[in-house]
Simulated scan of single mutants.
Amino acid sequence: MIQKLNNNSHEIAKKIRVVFQASYKIEAKLLGAKDFPPLKRPLKNYMESQNDFYGYLQNHELAAVVEIEHTKTHTRIKSLVVAPYFFRQGMASKLVQFTFNSYNSPLFIVETGAANLPATALYTKFGFVEILQWDTDFGVRKVKFKKTTM
């Protein structure tokens, strides 16, 4: 079940952060990153974020989270994380489809590590096309995808 999360709540933000931390630890290893900024994101940042957070709940447990930034011109999937215990169960796909169904936008954007093959496969499966690659200051090659709907 997917539901909107009140990230301004201290308790909910802590649960969101736990899923982010668990997922990003795996991604950092996958990307070979020793210094991975997403792992340094403080709880306060989640609580003060103006982005929308939606969670996938499995047996009342927060299993996956999508963070969405929506403007008049585009919708950006800022983060999409799944707790490792719930990998390979289709939750990320359901959250991407939920994003498309919930946001009427001419343009969807997402970025990930270029070596994150599960993520790049997920986005291309949904019709995203690669538009840019670059190297970050923290040693990770990133890739940016877009999907136009009009």
Rank of each mutant, 00 (worst) to 15 (best):
A83F: 12
Y85K: 14
R41M: 12
Y24P: 00
F108C: 02
A28W: 02
N7M: 01
L132G: 00
K147M: 08
I68P: 08
I16M: 10
S93R: 07
N8R: 15
T148L: 07
T120R: 12
K15D: 06
V19A: 08
A63K: 05
K14H: 07
K72S: 11
Q21K: 13
G55V: 01
T124E: 15
L107R: 10
K29W: 01
K44Q: 12
A63Q: 07
I77L: 14
P118T: 07
F128E: 07
D135L: 11
V96H: 05
D135S: 09
F53M: 03
M1Q: 12
K14L: 13
G139H: 08
A64Q: 09
V96G: 06
R41C: 14
G139E: 04
L117A: 06
L80Y: 01
G139L: 04
K15A: 12
V18F: 08
H10D: 12
L122S: 09
D52R: 05
I77W: 09
K25V: 01
G90I: 04
K29F: 02
F100A: 09
E111L: 03
Q58P: 00
T73F: 14
T120M: 01
F53P: 12
K15Y: 00
P38E: 08
I131T: 15
L117H: 10
S105T: 14
I16C: 10
F145T: 11
F53T: 03
K142M: 14
L107G: 07
P118C: 07
A63L: 06
L43N: 11
N8A: 09
E61G: 02
H74L: 11
P37D: 07
T149L: 14
F108T: 05
